[in-house]
């Protein structure tokens, strides 16, 4: 089929599949999307006049959510490995794990946002609030969309046969998922760790986070 762009990778001029090329072009574009968000956060670093800034971070808590997201990436790649070896059962198991870990990450983020607001940092408080909530909020939205996408694949896959086309469906959501993961790698490294290093009068999370 001339137009079934999903199956026939070898008929394209480059030998690359259309949809895979599309997702890579999208990710290339998304690099500038998140790059601009992170760059803006860094440009405004240290300019806030009032309120909390990096001192509000709880590195242990965010380390835990970072760990969850990294593990979801591992689950994702195992799902792909499953369907590539023709095992839909394995794929579905790891897709579900990925989606659940993704939801846990979003849960961590909602918890974090809630705590920050409790402590008086909102997007309106200062520049740090505006850039931080916008940047991490967009990242969280990407994760949430990914979770929705993963569950769609999970349920749709009950009607699949293992084949190149369906394995591509998993590969593409995987590329998106890993990309969202490496964006978090950058945010965690640059915004959280480098950002808060030196502001360690608050290296441990406040007691209130644990109901105290």
């Amino acid at each position: 089929m001339y137009f079934d762009t999903t199956v026939d990778a070898h008929r394209t001029s480059t030998g690359l599949n259309n949809r895979k090329l599309l997702i890579w072009a999208f990710l290339g574009s998304d690099v500038l999307f998140f790059g601009t968000l992170i760059a803006t956060h860094l440009l405004y670093r240290g300019r806030s006049l009032v309120g909390h800034t990096e001192d509000i971070f709880s590195i242990p808590v965010t380390s835990a959510s970072t760990f969850i997201l990294l593990m979801s990436s591992l689950a994702m790649v195992l799902a792909l490995s499953g369907i590539q070896r023709g095992n839909l059962q394995t794929m579905r198991f790891w897709i579900a794990i990925t989606a659940i870990f993704g939801s846990i990450f979003v849960g961590f983020q909602m918890f974090e946002f809630h705590e920050f607001v409790q402590e008086g940092l909102t997007p309106r408080t200062n520049l740090f609030g505006s850039t931080f909530f916008t940047m991490t909020g967009f990242h969280g939205a990407h994760v949430a969309i990914g979770v929705l996408w993963l569950w769609s694949i999970f349920f749709a896959s009950f009607r699949w046969s293992a084949g190149e086309r369906n394995s591509l469906n998993v590969e593409i959501v995987g590329l998106y998922w890993h990309f969202v993961d490496i964006v978090w790698v950058v945010i965690f490294g640059v915004v959280y760790l480098v950002g808060a290093y030196g502001a360690e009068d608050r290296i441990l999370p406040p007691v209130s986070w644990f109901g105290g």
Binding site: T40, L127, G129
Partner: peptide
Amino acid sequence: IFAFPPLTIALTFLLFDRFFDMNF
């Protein structure tokens, strides 16, 4: 695809400033 994302972000900042009183 490489130049529009910065505009999208700038417009988003403006949107957040105007609609949600942020500080960009």
